[in-house]
Amino acid sequence: MTLKTEPGRTKPGTRRHPTGVKAILLWIGVAMVTLAVVVVLARWIRGLEPVQDFLLTYPGRSELPDGAPVGIPAWLGWQHFLNAFFLVLIIRTGWQVRNTARPPGHWTRRNTGLFKTRNKPTKISLDLWFHLSLDVLWLLNGLVFVLLLFVTGGWMRIVPTSWDVVPNALSAALQYASLNWPIENGWVNYNSLQLLAYFAIVFIAAPLAAITGVRMSSAWPKGHRRLDKAFPIELARRIHFPVMVFFVGFVIVHVVLVFSTGMLANLNHMYAAREGAGWLGFGFFAASLAVMVAAWLLARPLFLRPVAGLMGKVSK
């Protein structure tokens, strides 16, 4: 004998999982409760005498090496915009590649000139072509960024040079969690938690995204068993997506802290290369945001097909 259920109802003994708006509200509720617990716990911990001594010894920032540059150069402003511009579109197209079952079109590289090979060019989706094209531009921009970073000495601001960065980062994290945030001046020196975050983004997450992306793309050499065995494509896939999630989390936290720890001063540092709380940096930020929104809206097959057609064959 079988149990029959009415449409829209579940069998006895089973659970219905919330979907859509209910799931979003559930996750928001869980996040708010978790945040409240973390704040209360952090405030209690800060009240302990040994912890107070720890915070006095390690205020949250390490001393910079001698010769470290003061201030933020102008080139870092346009680099910040370009990195944000490419990263937003890369995350969007990466998500489309991962979740689109029927792509709006396909692209095939022309097997001519310098790109002529014995193997037949691989047909890929239009979304993947756009994703890979953005990756190339982002990597080129990243090479310029790293070069300027080392030429100007700016690397000393985001590369750990002392082991006390670890306890100082723990101190800064506790101060953030307790909502009694560390006193800082990003124009002169980032706190240790910021330093480690920027180091991880530039020197760990970005290279991992690039290496795993190349492994999953048609640029990876075909027919090399040793290479394939040394770096299996399954491993690349398992790394690539979590790295994207890390980038998304970094962007969210970064934006929240920029707006909640002195918005005008922070935007002046980031976009106008000047100290103080004027509106110039906000103006540059608003303009860059408008450009990113426009690029987001224009990144659709109607506009992508003509551009892709200049580099290969586009088919529906």
Rank of each mutant, 00 (worst) to 15 (best):
A177W: 10
V253A: 04
A84G: 12
L48Y: 02
T5I: 14
R98Y: 02
G142Y: 10
P242W: 00
L55E: 09
D66K: 12
K11F: 03
A84S: 14
H106I: 04
W75C: 06
L76H: 11
S171L: 03
F282T: 09
S218W: 11
F130M: 10
G13W: 00
A197L: 11
Q175F: 05
W107Q: 02
P104S: 01
V255S: 01
T19G: 13
Y176P: 03
V307W: 07
H269N: 15
R16G: 04
L134E: 12
L140S: 12
T117D: 09
F54H: 02
F145I: 00
T112S: 14
V188F: 06
R274I: 07
V258I: 15
K22D: 10
A74P: 08
G312A: 01
W155R: 05
K120Y: 11
N99R: 11
V307P: 03
G142N: 03
H106W: 11
L35G: 06
P160T: 07
V314G: 02
V202E: 06
G67D: 14
L208G: 04
I24Y: 08
A31S: 05
G154D: 15
G312P: 08
V165M: 04
F231V: 12
A272E: 05
L304P: 02
H131F: 07
P69V: 07
P167I: 03
R110W: 13
M311L: 15
L41E: 10
I158R: 11
M156E: 13
R237K: 15
A177N: 12
F285A: 13
R109P: 07
L76R: 15
A172I: 11
P207K: 07
G94T: 06
P232A: 00
